[in-house]
Amino acid sequence: MQKNFRKVAKVALVLVYLVIIAGAVVRGTGSGMGCPDWPKCFGHYIPPTEISELQWKPDTDFKKGQIIIVDETLQVATETFKTSSAFNKNKWETYTKHDYAQFNPAHTWIEYINRLFGALAGLATLVLAVMSIRLFKTNKKITILSWLVVFGMGFQAWLGATVVYSLLEPVKITVHMVMALVIVAFLLYIIHITKATTKKVKTYKDIVPLLSFVLFMTLIQVILGTQVRQFIDERMDILGEAAKNQWLVNADWQFYLHRSFSIIIVLLNIFLAQRIYKNKLNFPKINWVLIFLFIEAMSGVAMYYFHFPFASQPIHLVLASLLFGVQFYLLLEAISAKRSYKSL
């Protein structure tokens, strides 16, 4: 039972990371408002592909809640009806959660796919939580954590809705990203504590405080990065895709703090790796930390010096979340190794 449970937890983790990847693509392509409403998309479960589907037409059936664009406003059908030869305002009400009324089919489907991944991840975590009930008598912690993940996914879905309704407000985007990392951490912890018992560590040097500090600094860097990303989004809206070389001209202090902070992150992780290698600690995941860190740094350099090459922004965000995940699991392994060492 526990072995199958762990497999489901891994599937849930992969799906959560797919949501993060899809979210990164959404931000990288500026598709955050591709679906102006939530949880549907223009009032549809399957979003439109052409602007004609969002235009009023005579002798056409419309369902209650369906959205069309009229005079640069979103209009919501108040009931299910068939249109006559003239537009009847009494059958529609103006969407009031925001005033964004644009349609881009590519953006709409990118955002829609992001939501589909979110639904799949939510379903996987619900299955995990239901399975955890059978483990309650033997390990209450697993059951509690599993249901906390479900509640976390629900809260994350609500945050996604508030991000849309706020027209991508920076603070809410940041909270949305941090919450995703919290869910990742919970799932990694579940995977770790359901791991089969392995041989005890014979030697151990106390690096848990250092690992904790490095993980905390990474989280700070991720938060700074989301703020920088908002600045870039604003510059992109003003200057357009054709002026990528101008996006970071006269950048604010947050960009320079984020860039300088990255040097500290690199040095801290190199020092951490040196401690692990020097003391011959059995933590091979430090190699993955260094690999992700190197590619992350290179993607940042590429964005700055080569003016945001294709896919560099989503790659940068996804690598940051992967780096956090590996560092967190490494910390869990270090804590377990410390306990094993003390029990020798």
Rank of each mutant, 00 (worst) to 15 (best):
K202Y: 02
A161G: 15
A157Q: 09
L168V: 13
L188R: 03
I144Q: 08
V164G: 02
L187G: 04
F213C: 06
Y204Q: 08
Y189M: 07
V214E: 03
S132I: 07
A180F: 03
T138K: 15
K200N: 10
K137V: 09
M217G: 00
T174N: 06
S146A: 14
I173V: 15
Y189V: 05
V178R: 05
F155P: 13
M179D: 13
L135E: 12
Y204M: 10
A161V: 13
I223R: 01
V214Q: 01
L210T: 14
N139F: 02
R134D: 13
I144T: 12
L181T: 11
I133H: 05
W147A: 00
R229C: 07
K172V: 08
G225F: 06
L210G: 08
P170G: 13
K195Y: 02
D206K: 05
I142P: 02
S146N: 06
S166C: 11
I173M: 04
I193Y: 06
R229Y: 11
A185Q: 05
M153A: 08
W158K: 08
P170S: 10
A157E: 11
M153P: 01
T226R: 00
V201S: 09
I207S: 04
V149I: 15
I193T: 13
F213Y: 06
L211G: 08
T198M: 09
L148I: 11
L219M: 13
V149G: 10
V208C: 01
T162V: 14
L168M: 08
V222C: 08
W147L: 00
L224D: 01
L167Q: 15
R134S: 14
V171Y: 15
R134N: 14
V171K: 14
I142A: 05
Y165L: 07
F216A: 12
I183D: 05
I223F: 03
V214R: 00
V201R: 03
V171I: 14
W147K: 03
T198A: 09
T138H: 12
K141I: 10
G152H: 06
K141Q: 11
I223Y: 02
H176A: 11
V222R: 02
V171Q: 13
T218G: 04
I191R: 11
T226K: 00
V222D: 00
K205H: 07
K141H: 08
T198H: 06
Q227T: 12
T226A: 04
S146Y: 02
A157P: 09
K141M: 05
A161M: 14
F213W: 07
K205G: 07
I173E: 01
V171R: 14
S146V: 04
S212T: 11
T226E: 04
L211R: 02
Y165R: 10
F151M: 13
S212A: 14
Y165F: 15
L181R: 01
T194G: 05
I190H: 01
L224N: 00
K200A: 07
P170T: 12
M153V: 10
V150H: 07
S146I: 03
V222E: 04
V222S: 03
H176V: 04
V164R: 01
K195C: 09
I191D: 01
G154I: 15
K137H: 13
T226S: 05
K199S: 15
K137G: 07
